[in-house]
């Protein structure tokens, strides 16, 4: 464990708490893409189900359980408790265009052609693109509540911090995980535009608004 990865994971944790806080305080899931959240459930379940047969560490175990449980809970809040506040007419990204190619990539690029390893690859590719419905929705509405942008910033920071972690591990341990690194770079790049607007508006105390 190095500091980059620790702060990356903490940032990921923070993003979940920010999202839960947003839903609870505004009593609404307005501005949150249900499709992105559903993809995260698929990502975490397919990747972290290995807690059933693989023991890494207590830290690893607790985090995995937390991410599976919290993502399911968020889906429950969106689908049941705050259902009326979700507007599917603006959450229109075609998810099938993501899942198909990711499944194909997972079949080609994996560390071992076994069910669980292909599933792991799929979760990595899917995670890298899971934010697209959310960003697409942001693009459509052209603005976002400040709390929602903090959520996205924390989520983006998580994968961004994994990049120096990989560089550090390459030099200190001599290991590299090309699948995770490639997908991680793509995922971080997707946030570039968002981060630019976030730092030039929200951090300066203005509302997040995309140029028309």
């Amino acid at each position: 464990m190095n500091l980059f990865r620790l702060f990356g994971d903490l940032s990921h944790l923070a993003s979940i708490f920010i999202l839960l806080h947003k839903i609870r305080t505004t009593r609404s899931c307005r501005g949150i893409s249900f499709k992105t959240q559903a993809l995260y459930v698929a990502v975490f379940v397919s990747r972290y189900l290995d807690i059933l047969w693989e023991w890494v560490s207590l830290y690893n175990f607790v985090m995995k359980v937390f991410f599976i449980a919290s993502s399911c809970f968020i889906l429950y809040l969106m689908k049941m408790k705050y259902r009326p506040t979700h507007d599917p007419s603006i959450d229109t990204f075609r998810v099938e265009f993501l899942v198909g190619p990711c499944a194909l990539l997972a079949l080609i690029f994996n560390y071992k052609f076994t069910f669980t390893e292909v599933l792991w690859s799929l979760s990595i590719f899917l995670e890298s693109l899971a934010i697209l419905p959310q960003l697409f929705m942001l693009q459509r509405t052209g603005e976002a509540e400040t709390i929602t942008t903090h959520y996205l910033a924390a989520l983006g920071a998580y994968r961004a911090l994994y990049i120096p972690n990989w560089i550090y591990r390459y030099f200190s341990e001599g290991v590299v995980d090309p699948i995770a690194v490639t997908a991680g770079l793509v995922q971080t790049a997707l946030y570039a535009d968002f981060f630019y607007v976030y730092f030039t508006t929200v951090i300066q105390g203005q509302k997040f608004e995309l140029p028309a």
Partner: peptide, 10 residues
């Protein structure tokens, strides 16, 4: 250089 999946990463 080893190419492998980092099992301890989340």
């Amino acid at each position: 250089m080893d190419q492998q999946r980092a099992k301890d990463e989340l």
